[in-house]
């Protein structure tokens, strides 16, 4: 079977600041790494491959330097990797990103199962995976917490459904997003890491995709616009309750009510 794992290169730190004057994001250093949640997606693919004959392809969208994240995936055991990179892909939101990835996945050729991490650590949306499935008109299930069974026709798994846990089955082609409980990710192998350096990284640009109209990609294809970014006001002032115990208890009760942790008794 053919498994596609969607991965993303993210900054190695969440320590970011906003330049007051320009409103531009300043990242502390330029170290990048694979989105930690993608490690679980890749591990799921590897575990499936241990059970049945499977070929694992990773795909990512990003700048040319995002090749590094594909090398990381190679060091973990991915068989082939594709980088979607084009200036026209820049500035993409959930809709345009998922569209581009769906186009890329189609361009690679056939697939049975697509696996995504539950979310990224830079965007935190958790919404690109389901959106890819919609573009591809295939079913998806998010927040898969356990793989129960896998064969060459279908996958059976446990999913988190708010208050319930469900066991469900989907035939291929389909997409799942996996939560971090699904498997413990392995460490990169030294041997694979060595090989990764020389392994081919396939590049896809707009020219390689079926939909060639640039209006669908990047900023043009994004219905949402970031109007501004700012640092949250760190209003860390300590409010002190220093009355007698009785009044402190009252003040605390009022505060919990205000914060909606206790209900108004009527």
């Amino acid at each position: 079977m053919k498994i596609i794992v969607c991965i993303k290169q993210v900054p190695d730190t969440q320590k970011v600041k906003v330049d007051d004057k320009t409103g531009v994001l300043i990242r502390d250093g330029i170290d990048t790494k694979m989105n930690p949640f993608d490690l679980y997606a890749l591990e799921t693919a590897m575990k499936i491959k241990e059970q049945i004959n499977a070929e694992i392809t990773v795909i990512t969208m990003g700048p040319p330097s995002a090749k590094e994240v594909i090398k990381e995936a190679y060091a973990l055991g991915a068989d082939s990797g594709y980088l979607l990179t084009d200036r026209k892909f820049a500035g993409a939101d959930v809709l345009a990103t998922s569209f581009t990835l769906a186009q890329g996945i189609t361009a690679i050729g056939g697939y049975d199962l697509i696996i995504c991490g539950k979310q990224t650590t830079d965007g935190d949306t958790a919404q690109v995976g389901p959106a890819i499935a919609e573009h591809l008109a295939i079913p998806h299930v998010s927040w898969v917490v356990k793989i129960k069974d896998v064969c060459d026709k279908s996958i059976t798994f446990m999913e988190d459904m708010l208050d319930d846990i469900a066991i469900a089955k989907m035939n291929y082609p389909c997409l799942i997003t996996v939560d971090k409980d699904v498997f413990q990710p392995r460490l990169p192998s030294y041997r694979l890491k060595q090989q990764a350096e020389t392994k081919t990284i396939n590049i896809l640009t707009l020219e390689d995709l079926a939909q060639k109209d640039s209006e669908h990609y990047g900023l043009s294809g994004s219905p949402t616009q970031v109007e501004k970014i700012f640092e949250p006001t760190s209003e860390h002032e300590v409010e002190r309750f220093e009355q007698d115990d009785k009044n402190n208890a009252k003040l605390l009760y009022q505060k919990l009510k205000e914060l909606k942790y206790v209900k108004e008794l009527s």
């Binding site: 809709l95 690109v128 219905p223």
Partner: peptide, 23 residues
């Protein structure tokens, strides 16, 4: 922005080719 909400909203938003802001 629950588990189910974040699975459902993107599918529907994509159908209308419209913007979706998460969480």
């Amino acid at each position: 922005a629950t588990t189910t909400g974040r699975s459902l909203a993107p599918r529907v938003a994509v159908r209308f080719k419209t913007g979706l802001t998460a969480d």
